[in-house]
């Protein structure tokens, strides 16, 4: 067993054991924690790769937290006929990584999940993950909206906790392959930029000056080597 595997099993083993002692239902998520394939990240120098490896080796979320977060993130971006959900983009794994990359997130995520269970237990007598969708949504309805005129550091903790999870869910989802497809971004591939399409200009009530356009690149001549006259006028 290599170091990464053993570290994981130690962390997960102790957590699962802890839960068992306290009489909680043992998690079924543990089986999913097999050794992830080694990914080569592009353009990294060794110090950066070491950091990624170190962060990947650590395990922050325990199985109960993973289950709760998975439910929470899917309430934020639910799967449906029309759309993929947060868990389709494995948003929780992204949050797991970010919690280690930005350690200041940790107390908010962990404490927030505890608050969620406490609140749900008080209201409904069950922890959040075991509540009905209606019960879960009733809790979220109380924390999901914020007053943008109140500075973030003056808003209630549970509101900020939910904002953090919503932000990480949105980013995690929309930076994934399925999220980028959904948002419709068309770039990140070789192409030739030749101005805003006419229907878009029309939609936003703007237009190009002829004078300005006359100065711009003629894309049919982009492959011809540039030549100038003595005054700096392009002649090719």
């Amino acid at each position: 067993m290599d170091r990464r595997k053993s570290l994981k099993s130690i962390v997960l083993g102790s957590v699962a054991g802890g839960l068992a002692v306290h009489g909680c239902k043992p998690s079924t998520v543990t089986e999913e924690f097999v050794e992830p394939p080694k990914i080569n990240y592009p353009g990294r120098v060794s110090l950066e790769e070491e950091l990624i490896e170190e962060l990947t080796d650590e395990q922050f979320l325990n199985p109960h937290e993973i289950e709760t977060l998975t439910i929470l993130c899917d309430l934020i971006l639910p799967p449906s006929q029309e759309f993929k959900g947060a868990s389709d983009a494995d948003v929780v794994s992204f949050i797991e990584f970010m919690a280690k990359d930005v350690p200041t997130y940790q107390p908010n995520i962990r404490g927030g999940l505890m608050w969620l269970d406490h609140n749900c237990n008080t209201e409904n007598g069950v922890e959040f993950k075991a509540a009905t969708v209606e019960q879960q949504k009733a809790i979220l309805d109380g924390v999901a909206f914020y007053d943008p005129e109140t500075p973030a550091n003056e808003r209630p903790f549970e509101v900020n906790f939910f904002s953090l999870i919503r932000n990480l869910t949105m980013t995690g989802f929309y930076t994934s392959k399925i999220g980028i497809e959904e948002i419709g971004y068309k770039g990140n591939q070789p192409n030739v930029w030749d101005g805003v399409p006419d229907d878009v200009l029309e939609q936003h009530s703007v237009s190009y000056d002829e004078e300005w356009l006359a100065k711009c690149v003629d894309q049919s001549k982009r492959g011809i080597i540039a030549e100038w006259d003595k005054k700096g006028n392009l002649i090719s």
Binding site: Y41, E48, G172, K177, Q189
Partner: peptide, 22 residues
């Protein structure tokens, strides 16, 4: 092996967030 051009955000575990190194 030095290229980051034309990579997608999900090819970074932090989705392109800044680091001390970058």
């Amino acid at each position: 092996e030095h290229q980051t051009q034309l990579k997608w955000p999900y090819e970074s575990p932090r989705r392109g967030k800044s680091t001390r190194f970058r």
